[in-house]
Design a protein around this nucleic acid. Structure first.
Lengths: 228, 228
DNA sequence: GCCGAGTGTCACAGAACTGTCGCGGATCAC
DNA sequence: GTGATCCGCGACAGTTCTGTGACACTCGGC
Protein backbone atom coordinates (compact mmCIF):
# COMPACT_ATOMS: atom_id res chain seq x y z
CA UNK A 1 0.00 0.00 0.00
CA UNK A 2 1.55 3.23 -1.15
CA UNK A 3 1.43 6.17 1.24
CA UNK A 4 -0.89 8.87 -0.04
CA UNK A 5 0.38 12.43 0.10
CA UNK A 6 -1.75 15.51 -0.42
CA UNK A 7 -0.10 18.69 -1.67
CA UNK A 8 -2.04 21.82 -0.71
CA UNK A 9 -0.29 24.57 -2.62
CA UNK A 10 -1.55 27.24 -5.01
CA UNK A 11 1.64 27.96 -6.94
CA UNK A 12 1.69 25.33 -9.63
CA UNK A 13 5.45 25.66 -10.09
CA UNK A 14 5.94 24.45 -6.54
CA UNK A 15 3.25 21.81 -6.56
CA UNK A 16 4.42 20.33 -9.86
CA UNK A 17 7.95 20.05 -8.52
CA UNK A 18 6.68 18.29 -5.42
CA UNK A 19 4.43 16.07 -7.48
CA UNK A 20 7.31 14.98 -9.65
CA UNK A 21 9.61 14.20 -6.75
CA UNK A 22 7.03 12.44 -4.64
CA UNK A 23 5.88 10.27 -7.50
CA UNK A 24 9.45 9.36 -8.22
CA UNK A 25 9.75 8.10 -4.66
CA UNK A 26 6.63 6.09 -5.26
CA UNK A 27 4.05 7.94 -3.26
CA UNK A 28 0.53 8.39 -4.43
CA UNK A 29 -0.02 12.11 -4.78
CA UNK A 30 -2.88 14.56 -5.19
CA UNK A 31 -2.87 18.33 -5.46
CA UNK A 32 -5.30 20.81 -3.93
CA UNK A 33 -5.00 24.39 -5.21
CA UNK A 34 -6.80 26.11 -2.36
CA UNK A 35 -7.84 25.57 1.20
CA UNK A 36 -11.41 24.62 0.41
CA UNK A 37 -10.36 21.93 -2.00
CA UNK A 38 -7.77 20.73 0.49
CA UNK A 39 -10.33 20.30 3.26
CA UNK A 40 -12.61 18.43 0.91
CA UNK A 41 -9.91 16.02 -0.17
CA UNK A 42 -8.73 15.50 3.40
CA UNK A 43 -12.24 14.51 4.27
CA UNK A 44 -12.79 12.28 1.27
CA UNK A 45 -9.48 10.61 0.75
CA UNK A 46 -7.79 10.59 4.16
CA UNK A 47 -4.18 11.26 3.15
CA UNK A 48 -1.28 9.79 5.11
CA UNK A 49 0.51 13.14 5.01
CA UNK A 50 -0.25 16.72 3.98
CA UNK A 51 2.22 19.21 2.58
CA UNK A 52 0.43 22.39 3.49
CA UNK A 53 1.23 25.84 2.21
CA UNK A 54 0.98 28.54 4.86
CA UNK A 55 -0.84 30.93 2.54
CA UNK A 56 -3.68 29.44 0.54
CA UNK A 57 -6.63 31.03 -1.28
CA UNK A 58 -10.13 30.77 0.21
CA UNK A 59 -9.12 29.01 3.43
CA UNK A 60 -5.59 29.66 4.71
CA UNK A 61 -3.18 26.88 5.54
CA UNK A 62 -3.20 27.84 9.19
CA UNK A 63 -6.95 27.53 9.28
CA UNK A 64 -6.81 24.17 7.49
CA UNK A 65 -4.30 22.97 10.04
CA UNK A 66 -6.43 24.17 12.93
CA UNK A 67 -9.53 22.48 11.58
CA UNK A 68 -7.74 19.18 11.13
CA UNK A 69 -6.39 19.26 14.65
CA UNK A 70 -9.65 20.29 16.25
CA UNK A 71 -11.69 17.33 15.17
CA UNK A 72 -12.64 15.73 11.92
CA UNK A 73 -11.68 12.28 10.78
CA UNK A 74 -8.13 12.11 12.02
CA UNK A 75 -6.85 14.90 14.29
CA UNK A 76 -3.37 13.35 14.30
CA UNK A 77 -2.91 13.55 10.56
CA UNK A 78 0.76 14.36 9.84
CA UNK A 79 1.26 17.87 8.48
CA UNK A 80 4.35 19.50 7.06
CA UNK A 81 3.95 23.27 6.70
CA UNK A 82 5.49 25.14 3.80
CA UNK A 83 6.23 28.79 4.50
CA UNK A 84 7.99 31.53 2.55
CA UNK A 85 11.19 32.60 4.22
CA UNK A 86 10.57 35.30 6.76
CA UNK A 87 6.82 35.02 6.36
CA UNK A 88 5.93 35.36 9.99
CA UNK A 89 8.53 32.68 10.55
CA UNK A 90 9.09 33.67 14.15
CA UNK A 91 5.47 33.63 15.02
CA UNK A 92 4.96 30.35 13.24
CA UNK A 93 7.22 28.51 15.59
CA UNK A 94 5.51 30.15 18.51
CA UNK A 95 2.02 29.40 17.33
CA UNK A 96 0.60 26.17 18.36
CA UNK A 97 -0.87 25.28 15.01
CA UNK A 98 0.22 21.73 15.52
CA UNK A 99 2.15 21.01 12.36
CA UNK A 100 4.60 18.15 12.61
CA UNK A 101 7.31 19.97 10.75
CA UNK A 102 8.06 23.26 9.02
CA UNK A 103 9.94 23.87 5.81
CA UNK A 104 10.75 27.34 4.52
CA UNK A 105 10.61 28.13 0.84
CA UNK A 106 12.75 27.95 -1.17
CA UNK A 107 13.55 24.48 0.06
CA UNK A 108 15.89 21.74 -1.04
CA UNK A 109 13.80 18.93 -2.49
CA UNK A 110 16.08 16.25 -1.12
CA UNK A 111 15.74 17.70 2.35
CA UNK A 112 11.98 17.85 2.04
CA UNK A 113 11.86 14.25 0.82
CA UNK A 114 13.93 13.25 3.82
CA UNK A 115 11.45 14.98 6.11
CA UNK A 116 8.53 13.32 4.38
CA UNK A 117 10.15 9.95 4.93
CA UNK A 118 10.92 10.81 8.54
CA UNK A 119 7.35 11.86 9.32
CA UNK A 120 5.86 8.85 7.58
CA UNK A 121 8.25 6.47 9.25
CA UNK A 122 7.16 7.81 12.58
CA UNK A 123 3.51 7.38 11.73
CA UNK A 124 3.69 4.18 9.78
CA UNK A 125 6.68 2.26 11.00
CA UNK A 126 7.86 -0.57 8.84
CA UNK A 127 7.23 1.46 5.72
CA UNK A 128 10.69 0.89 4.43
CA UNK A 129 11.61 -2.55 5.57
CA UNK A 130 15.16 -3.65 6.12
CA UNK A 131 14.46 -6.96 4.51
CA UNK A 132 12.16 -7.78 1.64
CA UNK A 133 11.48 -11.20 0.22
CA UNK A 134 9.72 -12.12 -2.97
CA UNK A 135 9.41 -15.78 -3.72
CA UNK A 136 12.65 -17.43 -2.67
CA UNK A 137 14.72 -14.27 -2.96
CA UNK A 138 15.56 -12.23 0.11
CA UNK A 139 17.24 -8.87 -0.03
CA UNK A 140 18.75 -7.35 3.09
CA UNK A 141 19.42 -3.70 2.49
CA UNK A 142 21.11 -3.09 5.83
CA UNK A 143 23.63 -5.86 5.40
CA UNK A 144 23.62 -5.25 1.65
CA UNK A 145 23.17 -8.91 0.93
CA UNK A 146 21.01 -11.02 -1.35
CA UNK A 147 20.06 -14.60 -0.52
CA UNK A 148 18.31 -17.24 -2.56
CA UNK A 149 17.58 -20.68 -1.19
CA UNK A 150 19.97 -19.95 1.67
CA UNK A 151 22.78 -19.36 -0.76
CA UNK A 152 24.32 -15.92 -0.92
CA UNK A 153 24.38 -14.13 -4.23
CA UNK A 154 26.93 -11.50 -5.02
CA UNK A 155 25.73 -8.48 -6.97
CA UNK A 156 27.49 -5.36 -8.14
CA UNK A 157 26.14 -2.01 -6.93
CA UNK A 158 23.93 -1.38 -9.95
CA UNK A 159 22.48 -4.88 -10.01
CA UNK A 160 21.79 -4.57 -6.30
CA UNK A 161 19.87 -1.32 -6.72
CA UNK A 162 18.04 -2.75 -9.68
CA UNK A 163 16.90 -5.82 -7.78
CA UNK A 164 16.03 -3.69 -4.78
CA UNK A 165 13.78 -1.57 -6.92
CA UNK A 166 12.14 -4.53 -8.57
CA UNK A 167 11.48 -6.12 -5.21
CA UNK A 168 9.73 -3.04 -3.93
CA UNK A 169 7.20 -3.48 -6.71
CA UNK A 170 6.93 -7.14 -7.55
CA UNK A 171 4.91 -7.86 -10.64
CA UNK A 172 4.98 -4.33 -11.93
CA UNK A 173 6.46 -3.66 -15.36
CA UNK A 174 9.01 -0.89 -15.72
CA UNK A 175 10.18 0.65 -18.97
CA UNK A 176 13.87 1.08 -19.56
CA UNK A 177 13.42 4.82 -19.16
CA UNK A 178 11.71 4.44 -15.80
CA UNK A 179 14.47 2.17 -14.59
CA UNK A 180 17.15 4.56 -15.77
CA UNK A 181 15.39 7.40 -13.97
CA UNK A 182 15.07 5.66 -10.66
CA UNK A 183 17.90 3.18 -10.48
CA UNK A 184 20.54 5.17 -12.32
CA UNK A 185 19.24 8.63 -11.46
CA UNK A 186 17.53 11.17 -13.62
CA UNK A 187 20.65 13.22 -14.13
CA UNK A 188 22.90 10.71 -15.83
CA UNK A 189 22.56 9.92 -19.48
CA UNK A 190 23.08 6.37 -20.59
CA UNK A 191 21.69 4.32 -23.44
CA UNK A 192 18.40 2.57 -22.79
CA UNK A 193 19.93 -0.68 -23.98
CA UNK A 194 22.29 -0.54 -21.03
CA UNK A 195 19.37 -1.61 -18.89
CA UNK A 196 19.17 -4.83 -20.90
CA UNK A 197 22.76 -5.63 -20.13
CA UNK A 198 22.32 -5.09 -16.41
CA UNK A 199 19.12 -7.06 -16.33
CA UNK A 200 21.04 -9.79 -18.08
CA UNK A 201 23.78 -9.67 -15.47
CA UNK A 202 21.25 -9.69 -12.67
CA UNK A 203 19.53 -12.72 -14.20
CA UNK A 204 22.79 -14.54 -14.55
CA UNK A 205 23.66 -13.91 -10.92
CA UNK A 206 20.24 -15.02 -9.73
CA UNK A 207 20.41 -18.17 -11.84
CA UNK A 208 23.72 -19.18 -10.26
CA UNK A 209 22.35 -21.90 -8.05
CA UNK A 210 20.09 -23.28 -10.72
CA UNK A 211 17.03 -21.26 -9.81
CA UNK A 212 14.34 -20.09 -12.17
CA UNK A 213 14.69 -16.76 -13.90
CA UNK A 214 12.62 -14.43 -11.70
CA UNK A 215 12.59 -11.55 -14.19
CA UNK A 216 9.99 -11.36 -16.88
CA UNK A 217 10.66 -9.57 -20.16
CA UNK A 218 7.69 -7.70 -21.52
CA UNK A 219 8.35 -7.15 -25.15
CA UNK A 220 8.41 -3.49 -26.19
CA UNK A 221 7.45 -2.46 -22.66
CA UNK A 222 10.22 -3.35 -20.24
CA UNK A 223 10.93 -5.74 -17.39
CA UNK A 224 9.20 -6.92 -14.26
CA UNK A 225 9.95 -9.13 -11.30
CA UNK A 226 7.67 -12.14 -11.21
CA UNK A 227 5.29 -11.42 -8.36
CA UNK A 228 4.41 -14.11 -5.90
CA UNK B 1 16.81 -6.28 22.54
CA UNK B 2 17.20 -2.63 21.74
CA UNK B 3 16.34 -0.20 24.54
CA UNK B 4 13.20 1.73 23.72
CA UNK B 5 13.28 5.46 24.31
CA UNK B 6 10.24 7.72 24.26
CA UNK B 7 10.69 11.37 23.37
CA UNK B 8 7.94 13.56 24.79
CA UNK B 9 8.57 16.91 23.18
CA UNK B 10 6.34 19.26 21.20
CA UNK B 11 8.96 21.17 19.24
CA UNK B 12 9.64 19.03 16.22
CA UNK B 13 13.04 20.64 15.69
CA UNK B 14 14.16 19.27 19.05
CA UNK B 15 12.47 15.92 18.78
CA UNK B 16 13.82 15.26 15.28
CA UNK B 17 17.32 16.04 16.47
CA UNK B 18 16.93 13.64 19.36
CA UNK B 19 15.36 11.04 17.11
CA UNK B 20 18.28 11.23 14.74
CA UNK B 21 20.91 10.93 17.43
CA UNK B 22 19.20 8.18 19.37
CA UNK B 23 18.60 6.10 16.28
CA UNK B 24 22.22 6.54 15.36
CA UNK B 25 23.15 5.00 18.70
CA UNK B 26 20.82 2.15 17.93
CA UNK B 27 17.93 2.80 20.24
CA UNK B 28 14.36 2.19 19.26
CA UNK B 29 12.64 5.56 19.42
CA UNK B 30 9.13 6.97 19.42
CA UNK B 31 7.90 10.54 19.65
CA UNK B 32 4.95 11.88 21.56
CA UNK B 33 4.00 15.47 20.72
CA UNK B 34 1.96 16.19 23.84
CA UNK B 35 1.40 14.95 27.36
CA UNK B 36 -1.71 12.99 26.54
CA UNK B 37 -0.02 11.08 23.76
CA UNK B 38 2.97 10.51 26.02
CA UNK B 39 0.87 8.95 28.78
CA UNK B 40 -0.83 6.73 26.26
CA UNK B 41 2.43 5.49 24.81
CA UNK B 42 3.94 4.97 28.24
CA UNK B 43 1.01 2.78 29.07
CA UNK B 44 0.99 0.87 25.83
CA UNK B 45 4.62 0.45 24.99
CA UNK B 46 6.44 0.60 28.33
CA UNK B 47 9.56 2.53 27.31
CA UNK B 48 12.89 1.88 28.97
CA UNK B 49 13.51 5.61 29.25
CA UNK B 50 11.58 8.84 28.71
CA UNK B 51 13.02 12.14 27.57
CA UNK B 52 10.36 14.44 28.93
CA UNK B 53 9.91 18.08 28.06
CA UNK B 54 9.00 20.24 31.04
CA UNK B 55 6.37 22.15 29.10
CA UNK B 56 4.02 20.02 27.02
CA UNK B 57 0.61 20.74 25.51
CA UNK B 58 -2.49 19.19 27.05
CA UNK B 59 -0.76 17.51 30.00
CA UNK B 60 2.45 19.13 31.22
CA UNK B 61 5.68 17.23 31.64
CA UNK B 62 5.61 17.73 35.37
CA UNK B 63 2.18 16.18 35.53
CA UNK B 64 3.24 13.27 33.33
CA UNK B 65 6.17 12.69 35.62
CA UNK B 66 3.98 12.79 38.71
CA UNK B 67 1.50 10.34 37.26
CA UNK B 68 4.22 7.87 36.34
CA UNK B 69 5.70 7.98 39.81
CA UNK B 70 2.42 7.70 41.62
CA UNK B 71 1.37 4.37 40.26
CA UNK B 72 0.80 2.89 36.85
CA UNK B 73 2.72 0.09 35.28
CA UNK B 74 6.22 0.99 36.34
CA UNK B 75 6.70 3.75 38.91
CA UNK B 76 10.48 3.46 38.59
CA UNK B 77 10.55 4.24 34.90
CA UNK B 78 13.69 6.29 34.16
CA UNK B 79 12.96 9.90 33.24
CA UNK B 80 15.25 12.60 31.94
CA UNK B 81 13.64 16.03 32.08
CA UNK B 82 14.29 18.63 29.39
CA UNK B 83 13.83 22.21 30.50
CA UNK B 84 14.45 25.57 28.88
CA UNK B 85 17.26 27.47 30.54
CA UNK B 86 15.99 29.53 33.42
CA UNK B 87 12.52 28.05 33.11
CA UNK B 88 11.91 27.65 36.80
CA UNK B 89 15.21 25.84 36.81
CA UNK B 90 15.87 26.51 40.47
CA UNK B 91 12.54 25.27 41.60
CA UNK B 92 12.82 22.21 39.40
CA UNK B 93 15.80 20.95 41.26
CA UNK B 94 13.98 21.60 44.49
CA UNK B 95 10.79 19.91 43.46
CA UNK B 96 10.54 16.31 44.10
CA UNK B 97 9.05 15.39 40.76
CA UNK B 98 11.22 12.35 40.72
CA UNK B 99 13.07 12.69 37.43
CA UNK B 100 16.33 10.79 37.24
CA UNK B 101 18.17 13.59 35.55
CA UNK B 102 17.71 17.12 34.25
CA UNK B 103 19.05 18.68 31.07
CA UNK B 104 18.58 22.34 30.22
CA UNK B 105 17.92 23.46 26.68
CA UNK B 106 19.86 24.23 24.59
CA UNK B 107 21.83 21.12 25.35
CA UNK B 108 24.81 19.42 23.80
CA UNK B 109 23.62 16.25 22.09
CA UNK B 110 26.75 14.33 23.01
CA UNK B 111 26.22 15.22 26.64
CA UNK B 112 22.59 14.15 26.50
CA UNK B 113 23.53 10.87 24.83
CA UNK B 114 26.03 10.26 27.60
CA UNK B 115 23.33 10.83 30.18
CA UNK B 116 20.97 8.52 28.37
CA UNK B 117 23.59 5.81 28.42
CA UNK B 118 24.32 6.49 32.07
CA UNK B 119 20.69 6.25 33.15
CA UNK B 120 20.08 3.11 31.13
CA UNK B 121 23.22 1.48 32.44
CA UNK B 122 22.07 2.17 35.96
CA UNK B 123 18.59 0.78 35.33
CA UNK B 124 19.37 -2.07 33.04
CA UNK B 125 22.85 -3.17 33.87
CA UNK B 126 24.41 -5.26 31.19
CA UNK B 127 22.53 -3.27 28.60
CA UNK B 128 25.71 -2.25 26.97
CA UNK B 129 27.75 -5.30 27.62
CA UNK B 130 31.30 -5.10 28.82
CA UNK B 131 32.16 -7.95 26.54
CA UNK B 132 30.81 -8.67 23.10
CA UNK B 133 31.69 -11.59 20.93
CA UNK B 134 31.01 -12.12 17.27
CA UNK B 135 32.24 -15.32 15.78
CA UNK B 136 35.59 -16.06 17.33
CA UNK B 137 36.35 -12.46 18.20
CA UNK B 138 35.82 -11.19 21.73
CA UNK B 139 36.12 -7.56 22.65
CA UNK B 140 36.40 -6.47 26.27
CA UNK B 141 35.68 -2.77 26.49
CA UNK B 142 36.50 -2.46 30.17
CA UNK B 143 39.90 -4.07 29.94
CA UNK B 144 40.31 -2.60 26.47
CA UNK B 145 41.40 -5.92 25.08
CA UNK B 146 40.60 -7.96 22.01
CA UNK B 147 40.91 -11.75 21.88
CA UNK B 148 40.66 -14.13 18.98
CA UNK B 149 41.00 -17.86 19.44
CA UNK B 150 42.36 -17.20 22.92
CA UNK B 151 45.17 -15.15 21.51
CA UNK B 152 45.33 -11.48 22.40
CA UNK B 153 45.33 -8.94 19.62
CA UNK B 154 46.80 -5.51 20.06
CA UNK B 155 44.93 -2.63 18.47
CA UNK B 156 45.51 1.10 18.40
CA UNK B 157 42.80 3.34 19.85
CA UNK B 158 41.15 4.07 16.51
CA UNK B 159 41.17 0.46 15.40
CA UNK B 160 39.71 -0.50 18.76
CA UNK B 161 36.81 1.94 18.45
CA UNK B 162 36.27 0.86 14.88
CA UNK B 163 36.04 -2.80 15.80
CA UNK B 164 33.89 -1.95 18.80
CA UNK B 165 31.44 -0.15 16.56
CA UNK B 166 31.37 -2.94 14.01
CA UNK B 167 30.74 -5.50 16.73
CA UNK B 168 27.76 -3.59 18.03
CA UNK B 169 26.12 -4.04 14.64
CA UNK B 170 27.41 -7.23 13.10
CA UNK B 171 26.44 -7.70 9.49
CA UNK B 172 25.45 -4.13 8.93
CA UNK B 173 27.14 -2.10 6.22
CA UNK B 174 28.47 1.33 7.09
CA UNK B 175 29.58 3.95 4.63
CA UNK B 176 32.88 5.67 5.15
CA UNK B 177 31.00 8.82 6.11
CA UNK B 178 28.95 7.02 8.74
CA UNK B 179 32.08 5.51 10.23
CA UNK B 180 33.83 8.87 10.29
CA UNK B 181 30.78 10.35 11.99
CA UNK B 182 30.54 7.80 14.73
CA UNK B 183 34.03 6.43 15.22
CA UNK B 184 36.00 9.58 14.58
CA UNK B 185 33.32 12.07 15.63
CA UNK B 186 31.21 14.36 13.53
CA UNK B 187 33.31 17.41 14.29
CA UNK B 188 36.67 16.35 12.90
CA UNK B 189 37.39 16.53 9.22
CA UNK B 190 39.39 13.72 7.71
CA UNK B 191 39.42 12.18 4.27
CA UNK B 192 36.97 9.37 3.65
CA UNK B 193 39.80 7.23 2.34
CA UNK B 194 41.39 7.31 5.77
CA UNK B 195 38.76 4.81 6.80
CA UNK B 196 40.17 2.39 4.25
CA UNK B 197 43.59 2.62 5.79
CA UNK B 198 42.30 1.94 9.29
CA UNK B 199 40.13 -0.90 8.12
CA UNK B 200 43.24 -2.28 6.46
CA UNK B 201 45.19 -2.01 9.71
CA UNK B 202 42.37 -3.60 11.65
CA UNK B 203 42.22 -6.46 9.17
CA UNK B 204 45.93 -6.99 9.37
CA UNK B 205 45.82 -7.13 13.15
CA UNK B 206 42.91 -9.55 13.15
CA UNK B 207 44.61 -11.78 10.61
CA UNK B 208 47.72 -12.09 12.81
CA UNK B 209 47.07 -15.58 14.03
CA UNK B 210 46.03 -16.84 10.64
CA UNK B 211 42.31 -16.22 11.03
CA UNK B 212 39.88 -15.37 8.28
CA UNK B 213 39.27 -11.76 7.38
CA UNK B 214 36.12 -10.92 9.35
CA UNK B 215 35.45 -7.65 7.55
CA UNK B 216 33.48 -7.57 4.35
CA UNK B 217 34.01 -4.86 1.76
CA UNK B 218 30.87 -3.76 -0.04
CA UNK B 219 31.94 -1.96 -3.12
CA UNK B 220 30.70 1.61 -3.42
CA UNK B 221 28.87 1.23 -0.11
CA UNK B 222 31.32 0.66 2.73
CA UNK B 223 32.36 -2.04 5.16
CA UNK B 224 30.65 -4.53 7.43
CA UNK B 225 31.62 -7.10 10.00
CA UNK B 226 30.68 -10.55 8.83
CA UNK B 227 27.62 -11.41 10.87
CA UNK B 228 27.43 -14.68 12.69
C1' DG C 1 65.62 16.53 22.55
C1' DC C 2 64.73 11.78 21.44
C1' DC C 3 61.88 7.92 20.77
C1' DG C 4 58.20 5.01 19.67
C1' DA C 5 53.40 4.53 18.84
C1' DG C 6 49.72 6.24 16.43
C1' DT C 7 47.59 8.95 12.76
C1' DG C 8 46.22 11.06 8.19
C1' DT C 9 47.37 11.54 3.37
C1' DC C 10 49.21 10.15 -0.93
C1' DA C 11 50.36 7.39 -5.02
C1' DC C 12 50.06 3.42 -7.55
C1' DA C 13 48.68 -1.21 -9.03
C1' DG C 14 45.29 -4.33 -9.47
C1' DA C 15 40.50 -5.66 -9.05
C1' DA C 16 35.78 -4.77 -9.89
C1' DC C 17 32.42 -2.58 -12.36
C1' DT C 18 30.26 -0.01 -16.25
C1' DG C 19 28.51 1.36 -20.76
C1' DT C 20 28.53 0.34 -25.55
C1' DC C 21 28.68 -2.45 -29.59
C1' DG C 22 27.60 -6.13 -32.70
C1' DC C 23 25.81 -10.43 -33.85
C1' DG C 24 22.36 -13.88 -33.98
C1' DG C 25 18.10 -15.66 -32.50
C1' DA C 26 13.23 -14.72 -31.16
C1' DT C 27 8.99 -12.48 -31.98
C1' DC C 28 5.65 -9.70 -34.32
C1' DA C 29 2.71 -7.49 -38.16
C1' DC C 30 1.08 -8.29 -42.53
C1' DG D 1 6.97 -16.53 -45.38
C1' DT D 2 9.31 -12.38 -44.77
C1' DG D 3 10.97 -8.10 -43.40
C1' DA D 4 11.21 -5.30 -39.36
C1' DT D 5 11.83 -4.99 -34.48
C1' DC D 6 13.20 -6.36 -30.30
C1' DC D 7 16.01 -8.81 -27.07
C1' DG D 8 20.00 -11.89 -24.98
C1' DC D 9 24.61 -12.19 -24.56
C1' DG D 10 29.61 -12.34 -25.18
C1' DA D 11 33.35 -9.20 -25.79
C1' DC D 12 35.94 -5.16 -24.69
C1' DA D 13 37.85 -0.83 -23.51
C1' DG D 14 37.41 2.71 -20.22
C1' DT D 15 36.36 4.12 -15.67
C1' DT D 16 35.90 3.82 -10.78
C1' DC D 17 36.99 1.83 -6.48
C1' DT D 18 39.90 -0.51 -3.15
C1' DG D 19 44.24 -2.43 -0.74
C1' DT D 20 48.51 -1.25 0.69
C1' DG D 21 53.29 0.44 1.32
C1' DA D 22 55.52 4.76 2.15
C1' DC D 23 56.01 8.96 4.50
C1' DA D 24 55.52 13.00 7.25
C1' DC D 25 53.54 14.70 11.38
C1' DT D 26 51.83 14.83 16.24
C1' DC D 27 52.18 13.82 20.97
C1' DG D 28 53.24 12.00 25.45
C1' DG D 29 56.96 9.81 28.22
C1' DC D 30 61.46 10.05 29.72
Amino acid sequence: MKPFVLIAEDESAVSELLLYNLQKEDYEVAIAADGEEALMMIDERAPDLILLDWMLPKVSGIEVCRRIRSGGANPNMPIIMLTARGEESDRIRGLDTGADDYVTKPFSTTELMARVRAVLRRIRPGLKEDKISVGDIVIDRVAHRVMRDDGEIHLGPTEFRLLDYFMQHPGRVFSREQLLDTVWGSDVYVEARTVDVHVGRLRKALRQDGGEDPIRTVRSAGYALRGD
